[in-house]
């Protein structure tokens, strides 16, 4: 799919700039240009496609749907899937949480949405396709949605309502069914300019992270010998996955910044499952996220939430190592 780009970048770096393909600098620069252009193209394409889906399933409509329909367990899968298609911004997680609770949506279902939203989103998917291919992306998306579903269900069973802050409990007591969502009457073509603007906005927003991530990745690609990490984190080490997750939880980065580095770690010998588990821990859970959630829940509840999600990330890490 990207052979033309490979040739173009090779011509630029090796022939025009005149760097040798066997040198560290040559390899690093080739990697940087090739990956930047490829990722940006994919990023815009996938953000645009997701934007179209999103124009028909805006968050208000999703809430209204989940609030009005009881699906005998299916609501966990729905909430998690919706979490995947909705663009994620960590600054919205608290309003979302309250909004869902207010609509009478059970806590577990709300958690299902909240877990999947940062893990699977347009930026993560675009970069995943660019770096690991379609098959790995599909497995990643499906397991992310599964993780949210199972995690949400388990958290829902724990009956943690008393651990919410008082005013959230008050909101919960006054919860009421949402009104039916009224769709804006716009044709497909009328929606396109808005979708394009949104997509460009998202790409522009993550651009600096992508470029910094790829630059670090490129430096590692050019200067760290292949198989370097294998000496330290081998596939046979059963503790590698939990360690990677525990290391990743406090850190915060979005998928855009962390994925280029993950790709290089994999190339240099870290098993893909371990690397993905690390990435999920970095993007899904973080200290800033915990601080935001403190406004709606007690520390105990945050600890249970983080612990449960981290546990399932570790499980998926082992699973990825077996199947990928």
């Amino acid at each position: 799919m990207f052979n033309w780009l490979d040739a173009l970048v090779a011509w630029l770096v090796y022939d025009t700039i005149g760097l040798d393909a066997t040198t560290h600098w040559g390899q690093a620069l080739h990697f940087f240009f090739y990956d930047s252009v490829k990722i940006l193209l994919l990023l815009f394409l996938i953000t645009f496609l997701m934007g179209i889906v999103n124009a028909y399933f805006p968050i208000d409509r999703i809430r209204s749907f989940l609030s009005r329909n009881k699906l005998y367990g299916g609501e966990y899968v729905m909430a998690s899937t919706f979490g995947a298609i909705t663009p994620f911004c960590s600054c919205s997680s608290v309003p979302l949480f309250i909004g869902f609770v207010k609509g009478g949506i059970p806590l577990g279902v709300t958690f299902a949405f909240l877990i999947t939203s940062p893990l699977v989103n347009e930026v993560a998917l675009a970069m995943f396709v660019g770096m690991f291919g379609l098959k790995a992306t599909l497995i990643y998306a499906v397991s992310g949605i599964l993780l949210g579903t199972v995690g949400g269900y388990v958290l829902g069973r724990l009956k943690m309502e008393p651990l919410l802050t008082d005013w959230v409990q008050g909101v919960m007591r006054q919860a009421h069914m949402e009104e039916a969502y009224e769709e804006e009457k716009l044709t497909f073509l009328q929606r396109l300019p808005g979708v394009g603007r949104e997509a460009w906005g998202i790409v522009k927003g993550v651009l600096p992270y992508v470029l910094i991530g790829i630059a670090i990745g490129a430096a590692m690609h050019g200067f760290i010998p292949t198989g370097f990490f294998e000496k330290y984190i081998s596939k046979d080490n059963p503790l590698a996955v939990p360690l990677a997750v525990i290391l990743g939880v406090p850190m915060y980065s979005n998928a855009a910044g962390v994925l280029p580095i993950i790709q290089v770690l994999v190339q240099k010998g870290i098993p893909i499952g371990t690397a993905i588990a690390f990435m999920m821990a970095v993007v899904g859970l973080s200290i800033p996220e915990a601080m935001l959630l403190k406004k709606v829940m007690s520390w105990k509840m945050i600890a249970i939430f983080f612990g449960t999600v981290a546990f399932f990330i570790i499980l998926s890490g082992y699973l990825f190592n077996i199947i990928l």
């Binding site: 968050i59 208000d60 809430r63 911004c89 600054c91 919205s92 309003p95 979302l96 309250i98 909004g99 869902f100 207010k102 909101v171």
Partner: peptide, 9 residues
């Protein structure tokens, strides 16, 4: 903020 019934900021 929540008095305005919004989900995203």
């Amino acid at each position: 903020i929540m008095k305005y019934n919004i989900l995203t900021t």
